[in-house]
Amino acid sequence: DVPLPAGWEMAKTSSGQRYFLNHIDQTTTWQDPR
């Protein structure tokens, strides 16, 4: 597995969808940043 870039975290919604948190610029995205 390729690790997420620095500052990123993967999370899941209550319905189980994956999303990605960027802690550096305080954004979220559905797109995997890798």
Rank of each mutant, 00 (worst) to 15 (best):
D1R: 15
D1V: 15
D1E: 14
D1F: 13
D1Y: 13
D1L: 15
D1G: 14
V2H: 15
V2Y: 12
V2C: 11
V2E: 14
V2M: 13
V2I: 13
V2T: 13
V2N: 15
V2P: 15
P3E: 12
P3Q: 13
P3T: 13
P3L: 11
P3G: 14
P3H: 14
P3S: 14
P3V: 08
P3R: 14
L4G: 01
L4M: 12
L4E: 03
L4Q: 05
L4A: 06
L4R: 04
L4I: 08
P5K: 05
P5T: 07
P5Q: 07
P5H: 02
P5M: 05
P5W: 01
P5E: 01
A6G: 10
A6S: 11
A6P: 12
A6V: 11
A6D: 10
A6R: 12
G7E: 00
G7T: 02
G7S: 07
G7F: 10
G7V: 03
G7R: 08
G7D: 06
G7Y: 06
W8F: 08
W8Y: 08
W8K: 05
W8C: 03
W8L: 04
W8E: 05
W8R: 05
W8S: 03
E9Q: 12
E9P: 01
E9R: 04
E9Y: 06
E9L: 01
E9N: 08
E9K: 07
E9D: 13
E9A: 13
E9H: 06
E9S: 13
E9T: 12
E9G: 15
M10R: 11
M10S: 14
M10F: 07
M10G: 13
M10V: 11
A11D: 06
A11L: 01
A11S: 11
A11Y: 00
A11N: 06
A11P: 03
A11E: 04
A11I: 05
K12A: 08
K12E: 11
K12L: 11
K12M: 10
K12T: 10
K12V: 08
T13S: 08
T13R: 03
T13M: 09
T13P: 03
T13L: 08
S14K: 15
S14H: 13
S14R: 14
S14N: 12
S14Y: 10
S14L: 10
S14P: 09
S14T: 12
S14V: 11
S14I: 13
S14G: 12
S14A: 14
S15L: 10
S15N: 07
S15H: 10
S15G: 13
S15F: 12
G16N: 08
G16F: 05
G16Y: 03
G16S: 07
G16L: 07
G16C: 07
G16E: 03
G16H: 07
G16A: 06
Q17R: 13
Q17V: 09
Q17D: 09
Q17N: 07
Q17H: 11
Q17G: 10
Q17L: 08
Q17Y: 15
Q17P: 04
Q17M: 08
Q17E: 09
R18S: 11
R18N: 15
R18G: 07
R18Y: 11
R18T: 14
R18Q: 09
R18L: 12
Y19L: 00
Y19D: 03
Y19K: 03
Y19W: 01
Y19A: 04
Y19N: 03
F20C: 02
F20D: 09
F20H: 06
F20S: 02
F20M: 05
F20A: 06
F20I: 03
F20L: 02
L21K: 15
L21W: 03
L21Q: 06
L21V: 09
L21I: 13
L21F: 04
N22A: 00
N22P: 01
N22R: 05
N22I: 00
N22E: 03
H23K: 03
H23Y: 01
H23T: 04
H23I: 05
H23A: 00
H23R: 04
H23S: 00
I24N: 14
I24M: 11
I24S: 10
I24L: 11
D25N: 15
D25C: 15
D25Q: 15
D25T: 12
D25P: 04
D25V: 12
D25G: 13
D25F: 14
D25Y: 12
D25L: 13
Q26S: 04
Q26E: 06
Q26A: 04
Q26L: 05
Q26Y: 07
Q26D: 01
Q26G: 04
Q26H: 09
Q26W: 02
Q26N: 00
T27S: 11
T27H: 07
T27D: 05
T27K: 09
T27A: 08
T27Y: 12
T27L: 11
T27M: 10
T28I: 00
T28S: 07
T28F: 00
T28H: 05
T28V: 01
T28K: 01
T28A: 00
T29E: 08
T29I: 02
T29G: 08
T29Q: 14
T29K: 05
T29R: 07
T29L: 05
T29V: 03
W30Y: 02
W30L: 01
W30E: 00
W30R: 00
W30C: 01
W30Q: 07
W30G: 00
W30K: 00
Q31L: 08
Q31D: 09
Q31E: 07
Q31R: 14
Q31P: 02
Q31S: 10
Q31T: 12
D32F: 07
D32Y: 09
D32I: 10
D32S: 08
D32T: 07
D32R: 10
P33F: 10
P33G: 05
P33S: 02
P33H: 03
P33T: 02
P33A: 02
R34D: 05
R34W: 01
R34G: 04
R34Q: 05
R34T: 07
R34A: 00
R34L: 03
R34V: 00
R34S: 05
